[in-house]
Design a protein around this nucleic acid. Structure first.
Length: 393
RNA sequence: GGAGGGUUAGCGAAGUGGUCAAACGCGGCAGACUGUAAAUCUGUUCCUUCGGGUUCCAUGGUCCGAAUCCAUGACCCUCCA
């Protein structure tokens, strides 16, 4: 399979610029391209992973990835469809940059890494307006989908300007790093095309770009959130076991798509899993492969094996050294549930017990006033949250 | 600068003096059915020592009583200049 075929197979192309020779050049290799992210948190999450894997995929076809961390753009804030972002403290953003850089270095050690703060920080307002502002027509900007959607809700001049910065990044990388292609998530299409336009207007050159579709569940909800929280790539924020569990619970109808998107398994391997999955969905072979492969990529084979063993032990009614463990100081079942993050309040904990959603050592708890006299036990909340609890005196 | 409209639970959205801890939908959580999937059905969704307590942008006020009326302020939207 050539590069373009592989991208199509994996569902990685949503929009692409209409250069005549785009597909040819993708297949030929040798393009320098970049993909970026803003430091909105100190860790990347599962959604980022699916995008950044493109670095490795394209590198395997002979292209040269540059990874950009948006120190400058992070200070401005990419407009969200709903509302203005809160202004982040610069110290937070600088701290986030470090966290994200370290992760990217770890996962993509062969990529060149750049920070747009480096080439943006010394540009003066007047220079920027004179040298680049003239290339942008307000009507053009307002017609970008993301801006249009914000016109009702309101958008600050700051966020409105975001696309100019991202466009300038592309231009700068084009001029200084010979970077001729940009890749990003589908929500970045407007920003990307601004960059392509800027390069055309300022340099009279063609640039290339494509976006990748958002990874969603069957019903179109963004994939990669668990209990309202992102699944972080940082092991201390989301344990290998949690990551494994999240992936193994993927919907049947989506699991093959996720395998294409999140792993480097070949078409043959994925086809094989698809057959197995269709024949015996209850074996969850495809789900297991997905979970294992992703955890292996993130945390190494050893951690992946541990996560798999823990998962299999726990869901066969057993225990494991690697299962999530909480230390609590209470003996009252409601307080224990809150301490173990199974409930956010005692009211919620009480409701859980009353609805029959809590078990201790496989026995359903039916008394909300239960005092637990064991010092170590297995607590189950709902169907899937199974943890070890140690009571500390 | 002028005129008008708005701000209600995670989100969307009703509610215009008491019966409002606030309809309804989505989302979330739990139960049943299953395969750690989906769909479906049922229950639930501010806190609580279960007596009650604290909510409807903020602060003050009117009233026996305020999400609802008044004043001031903040933020947002639309139109005009």
């Amino acid at each position: 399979m050539n590069c373009y075929e592989d991208l199509v197979y994996r569902g990685l192309i949503k929009d692409m610029t209409n250069n005549e020779d785009f597909i040819e050049r993708l297949n030929k290799g040798g393009m320098t391209f970049y993909i970026g992210t803003d430091p909105t948190a100190d860790s990347l999450h599962l959604g980022h992973l699916s995008s950044f894997l493109i670095c490795e995929r394209l590198a395997r076809f002979g292209h040269h990835p540059i990874v950009l961390v948006g120190g400058a753009t992070g200070l401005i804030g990419d407009p969200r469809p709903t509302k203005e972002r809160e202004k982040q403290d610069t110290s937070v953003i600088f701290k986030n940059i470090e966290g994200i850089k370290n992760q990217l270095k770890k996962y993509f050690p062969n990529c060149e890494m750049v920070n747009n703060y480096d080439w943006t920080k010394d540009i003066t307002f007047i220079d920027f307006l004179r040298d680049y502002g003239k290339y942008f027509n307000i009507n053009y900007m307002i017609n970008k989908d993301i801006i249009k959607r914000r016109l009702d809700e309101g958008i600050s001049y700051t966020e409105f300007s975001y696309m100019l910065m991202q466009a300038y990044d592309f231009l700068w990388l084009y001029q200084n790093k010979n970077c001729i292609m940009q890749v990003a998530g589908q929500d970045q299409w407007g920003n990307i095309t601004s960059g392509v336009e800027l390069i055309r207007k300022a340099l009279n050159k063609d640039a290339y770009a494509f976006t990748m579709p958002l990874v969603t569940t069957k019903s179109g909800v963004k994939f990669g959130k668990s209990e309202g929280n992102a699944l972080w790539l940082d092991k201390d924020k989301t344990s290998p076991y949690q990551m494994y569990q999240y992936l193994i619970n993927s919907e049947d109808e989506m699991v093959i798509d996720y395998l294409k998107r999140f792993t480097f398994l070949s078409k043959e391997e994925i086809d094989d899993l698809e057959v197995k999955h269709k024949e015996k969905p209850e074996n969850r072979d495809a789900h297991k492969a997905l979970a294992f492969e992703v955890v292996k990529f993130l945390h190494g084979e050893e951690e992946a094996v541990k996560a798999r063993e823990a998962s299999e032990a726990i869901f066969n009614g057993g225990i494991s050294d690697d299962m999530p463990t909480f230390e609590v100081t209470s003996k009252n079942i409601l307080d224990i549930l809150v301490e173990c993050e199974c409930a956010t309040s005692k009211s919620e904990a009480r409701r859980l017990v009353q609805q029959g959603g809590v078990s201790i050592d496989s026995k359903r708890v039916d008394d909300a006033n239960l005092i637990v006299d064991k010092l170590e036990f297995i607590l189950q909340k709902g169907k899937k949250k199974i943890i070890k609890v140690i009571v500390k005196e």
